[in-house]
C-alpha cells in the first residue's frame, strides 16, 4: 500500500536538565490519523517537532518507511498553529514559494489552482493574508501543505488560534480533506472534540516528562463521523477523565513556577 509509516522508538528529549519526553514508542500507520493529546507542557509539540526533523531528540530514533508518490515534493510537511504565512506574499504566492525551483511554472500554477479549489480559496488567490479571516488563513496553510503532495502531514494545533465557530467548521473540512488525501497525519491538539473527530489512534501523554499514558483506537472512517456522534462523545469523556488530573497539576505547576 502506498503511504508512509512513521515509527518512533524510545524517543526522549530534554532541555538541559529538564526532561520533557521520556521513552515514547509509537507508530503511525499509512493513511492513519494519529492524534497526540495531553496536558499543557507535556511535550506534544516537541514530539511533533522531533517527528518532522525540526528538533533533534536527545534519545531514541524516528524513522519512516513506505512508498511515496512520485510527485511528492516534501514527504513530512507541517501545518502550523500560527499559520506561518508570509504577509508580503498573496495567497497564491505563499503556495508558490514552496513549489518554486522544484516545478516548472505551468505545473506550479496547476497545483496552486488545484489546492485552492480543494480548500475553497480560488477566488482569494490574489488576496493578502492580512485581508483574510483566521479560518481562511489556516485554509491557506492547509492548501500550501497539500500542494507539495505530502506523504505525512504534521499538524500542530492548527485550530487553536481560531474562534469556536470557525474551529467547528474547519474541523469538518479537515476531516474531509484528510480523508480524501489519505495522507498519514499526526495531529497535536488540546481539544478532545478534535481528537475524537479526526483520530484513528489517539495517544494520551502524561504531564512532563511526557510518557504514553494510554492509546485509544477509533476504527471508523472519518467520513462516517460527526461532531455530535454519541460514541465519540463517550470516548471524549473517557479521554478527559484520563487527562483531567494531569491537566490540573500541570496548570498548578505553571502558576507555581518562578517567573
Amino acid at each position: 500500500m502506498m503511504g508512509l509509516r512513521l515509527i518512533l522508538e524510545q524517543v526522549s528529549h530534554a532541555y538541559r536538565d529538564l526532561s520533557v519526553l521520556d521513552g515514547i514508542t509509537l507508530t503511525a500507520a499509512p493513511g492513519e490519523v494519529l492524534v497526540l493529546v495531553g496536558p499543557s507542557g507535556c511535550g506534544k509539540s516537541t514530539l511533533l517537532g522531533i517527528m518532522g526533523g525540526m528538533l533533534a531528540a536527545t534519545g531514541g530514533t524516528v524513522s519512516v518507511t513506505g512508498e511515496v508518490a512520485a510527485d511528492c515534493l516534501n514527504p513530512l510537511t507541517y501545518v502550523f498553529q500560527d499559520f506561518a504565512l508570509l504577509p508580503w506574499r498573496s495567497v497564491a504566492g505563499n503556495i508558490d514559494l514552496v513549489l518554486r525551483a522544484r516545478l516548472p511554472k505551468a505545473e506550479r500554477q496547476a497545483r496552486i489552482a488545484e489546492v485552492l479549489a480543494l480548500t475553497n480559496l480560488t477566488e482569494f488567490a490574489g488576496a493578502w493574508p492580512r485581508q483574510l479571516s483566521g479560518g481562511m488563513r489556516q485554509r491557506v496553510g492547509i492548501a500550501r501543505a497539500l500542494a507539495v503532495r505530502p506523504a505525512c502531514l504534521l499538524m500542530d494545533e492548527p485550530l487553536s488560534a481560531l474562534d469556536a465557530q470557525t474551529r467547528d467548521l474547519l474541523l469538518d473540512e479537515f476531516a474531509a480533506i484528510i480523508a480524501r488525501a489519505g495522507t498519514t497525519t499526526v495531529y497535536v491538539t488540546h481539544n478532545l472534540k478534535e481528537a475524537v473527530r479526526l483520530g484513528h489512534q489517539i495517544v494520551v501523554l502524561s504531564r512532563r516528562p511526557g510518557r504514553i499514558r494510554a492509546t485509544v483506537r477509533i476504527d471508523r472512517a472519518l467520513t462516517d463521523r460527526t461532531a455530535r456522534d454519541p460514541d465519540l462523545l463517550v470516548i471524549g469523556e473517557e479521554l478527559w477523565r484520563m487527562i483531567r488530573d494531569d491537566a490540573a497539576a500541570a496548570e498548578r505547576e505553571r502558576v507555581d513556577a518562578p517567573a
Partner: peptide, 27 residues
C-alpha cells in the same frame, strides 16, 4: 523565526529562504 522554520520544514534551500523569507522580512 517561525517563518524561517516554515521554509526549512518545506525543504527550501538556504538561498530560497534568504531570498523568499529573510530579505523581504528585513526590508
Amino acid at each position: 523565526r517561525g517563518l524561517i522554520r516554515m521554509g526549512q520544514s518545506f525543504g527550501l534551500s538556504t538561498g530560497a529562504i534568504v531570498r523568499g523569507i529573510i530579505l523581504p522580512g528585513a526590508l
